Computed example of a mutant assay.
Amino acid sequence: MKKVVFVLAAAGLMSLAACSKQTPAENATDATANALDNAGENLEDLADNASTDAAAASLDNAADNAHDAADAVEDNKQ
């Protein structure tokens, strides 16, 4: 009886462990989205320190595009 309970508990724990693992493609997708978000944050910081309004607007647009690209990568994650 103890062996049966042990085997069932081990099988349950193994199935839980298998559910949380990501594939290498999912890891790469997450890394890409994070990199794009980080680039967007850096562009926003540059926009805050820009010397002209036109440069700040251009950097803000680039930051928005980077954030949108990160969102698109996450949305297409398989």
Rank of each mutant, 00 (worst) to 15 (best):
A31I: 05
D37K: 14
A47P: 10
T29L: 01
K3Y: 10
A10D: 02
A28N: 04
A57V: 01
S20A: 12
L8T: 13
S58D: 14
D64Q: 08
Q22A: 12
L43R: 01
D64G: 09
N34Y: 08
L8H: 10
V7P: 00
V73Q: 00
A33E: 00
N65W: 07
A28D: 09
S20R: 11
L16N: 07
A55M: 10
N27C: 03
N76S: 15
A54K: 06
K21H: 08
T32A: 14
M14L: 15
A72W: 02
T29A: 09
V7R: 02
A50C: 05
N49Q: 14
E26F: 05
A47H: 08
E41Q: 15
D30N: 13
A28T: 11
K2A: 02
N27A: 09
K21M: 07
A35N: 06
L43M: 05
G12V: 12
A10G: 05
K21F: 08
N27E: 13
K3I: 11
M14N: 04
C19G: 11
A9M: 13
T32P: 03
A63D: 05
C19V: 15
A57K: 09
N38Q: 15
D48C: 07
N42Y: 07
D71F: 04
S58M: 06
M1R: 09
A35F: 01
N65Y: 08
L36Y: 01
V7E: 03
L43S: 01
D53F: 01
A55Q: 13
N42Q: 15
E26R: 08
N42V: 11
A54M: 02
D37C: 06
A17W: 08
A31D: 14
A47K: 05
P24A: 04
N61S: 15
D71P: 10
A66E: 05
E41Y: 13
T29Q: 05
V7W: 08
A69E: 13
N42D: 14
E26N: 11
D53R: 00
C19R: 07
A66R: 02
N76K: 11
M1K: 07
V4D: 04
